[in-house]
């Protein structure tokens, strides 16, 4: 397949093969506990990560909890 260009947390990423959201998170985040994912503005529950395919042009946000007042 052709390479796929996506945006993760505002950064452009290129992948050479198809992947699921689960694969992507495992690939980019060393600890997926407490990660929350948004795909093109829609929250994706962690139970759906494996069945959610990433497509060319997708914008993904991966967030977690940090210290704050």
């Amino acid at each position: 397949m052709l390479s796929m260009k996506i945006t993760v947390n505002g950064q452009e990423k290129v992948f050479e093969s198809s992947l699921s959201l689960e694969n992507l998170i495992e690939n980019l985040s060393q600890n997926k506990d407490h990660v929350i994912a948004e795909l093109n503005g829609n929250i994706i529950k962690s139970s759906k990560w494996l069945s959610t395919a990433i497509s060319d042009g997708d914008a993904i946000e991966l967030v977690t909890f940090v210290g704050g007042g």
Binding site: N9, L28, S29, D33, I36, L62, T64, F65
Partner: peptide, 19 residues
Amino acid sequence: VTVALRRIDLEQSGESILP
């Protein structure tokens, strides 16, 4: 306690504060 939500750091392994 209050916490904030931020993008995970793609460059290094960030650990959530929740534990």
